[in-house]
């Protein structure tokens, strides 16, 4: 039977604020899973803690709502134990780039074949609007007593520098593009990162839907707002590493970094960088353990009638005197 979008939705009451960008992201995830026809039981959403962390309860696949900042370790553990699963990790910008930043960098180095989506609203939503690591220096969102005293981290740049092999950005209110990006990210062989710009109407009164639409920045001649968001692919941008020569990789990394610095007036979305020539972690293990992928930790039989079937007598022999 063809899977339907409704199959991927739970009937759990969604308590996000009206107008929250998170709705768009969860819709895009459900649409992507439907379109890819991924069997529900072969997929798992792992999430962090925050408003964004509730995502896993709204998608009707395995849902693992982890700890603040720890979504990547949990998700990687599951994926490495059972590489047959399709795994999407999701969490807030505070979750992934504040408390979980160490895991972010380490995950990039591993390049496990899964997808990580950051809901980037520049605030700590669930704890009532404190500055998140992506809020710009000097900005004072609604509930901040003083303007932000920290520089913002650049999620796209950090992902590229850390070794993520697919780095992209979506916008929570462009669900169609976001769905396509999620599909591309899931299909990507290796660790894919999506930075999703997610307006938080409750606490972020700076990066609002209107701001992204450029309502504050009207063209003098046409009198039309100049939208900040644009799509990289519409500019002829090619994010893909095709051959893997050092110079090509350097060029692609550099253009991704340069693009990641665009903000304020023009904000690129789409795929910034993609390199499938880097072996995922699973392949690196399979090089050492030839049957790892088809006989993964989760699928290995370990007992028969309550007795161990692991045969360690050769190793035990080496301890005999």
């Amino acid at each position: 039977m063809e899977p339907k979008l409704a199959d991927y939705k739970t009937d759990v009451h969604n308590d996000w604020c009206p107008g929250c960008g998170d709705f768009g992201i969860v819709n895009a995830i459900q649409m992507a899973l439907t379109e890819m026809k991924i069997p529900r039981h072969m997929s798992a959403i792992f999430s962090g803690i925050g408003c964004s962390g509730k995502t896993s309860h709204f998608v009707n696949v395995f849902g693992v709502h982890t700890l603040h900042g720890r979504v990547l370790p949990f998700a990687q553990g599951a994926k490495l134990a059972n590489p047959n699963l399709t795994i999407i990790a999701a969490g807030g910008d505070g979750d992934g780039l504040g408390i979980g930043a160490g895991h972010f960098v380490a995950a990039g180095r591993r390049n496990v074949d899964m997808t990580y989506i950051i809901f980037n609203n520049a605030v700590y939503g669930l704890t009532k609007g404190q500055a998140s690591p992506t809020l710009r220096l000097g900005q004072k969102t609604k509930s901040l007593p003083n303007p932000n005293v920290n520089e913002a981290v650049n999620p796209i740049g950090l992902a590229i520098a850390s070794g993520f092999t697919f780095v992209g950005r979506g916008y929570a209110y462009d669900v169609r593009q976001l769905k396509d990006l999620i599909i591309a990210a899931v299909k990507h062989k290796g660790l894919a990162f999506l930075d999703v710009l997610q307006p938080c109407p409750t606490y972020n009164d700076i990066n609002t839907r209107d701001w992204f639409a450029g309502l504050d920045n009207v063209d003098e001649i046409t009198q039309k707002p100049k939208p900040r968001i644009y799509k990289l692919e519409e500019t002829g941008y090619d994010p893909i590493v095709h051959y893997g020569s050092e110079s090509e990789v350097n060029e692609k990394l550099t253009q991704g970094l340069i693009k990641s610095n665009e903000w304020d007036i023009k904000i690129p979305t789409g795929i910034f960088y993609q390199n499938e020539l880097v072996a995922p972690y699973e392949e690196r293990i399979a090089d050492r353990v030839p049957n790892y992928l088809e006989n993964s930790p989760a699928t290995q039989p370990i007992s028969s009638d309550g007795k161990s079937i692991t045969e360690i007598s050769k190793i035990l022999d080496s301890f005999e005197v």
């Binding site: 370790p73 599951a78 490495l80 895991h103 353990v289 006989n295 930790p297 692991t310």
Partner: peptide, 30 residues
């Protein structure tokens, strides 16, 4: 990598993590 009775060879996946929080997180995920 080791032998398994009446089956193909088995293996233990040992992952060195970035810290102990990740170590226990991965073990739980697994």
């Amino acid at each position: 990598v080791f032998d398994v009775k009446n089956n193909r060879p088995g293996s233990t996946l040992v992952v060195q993590t970035e810290d102990e929080i990740s170590a226990i997180g991965m073990a739980i995920g697994s």
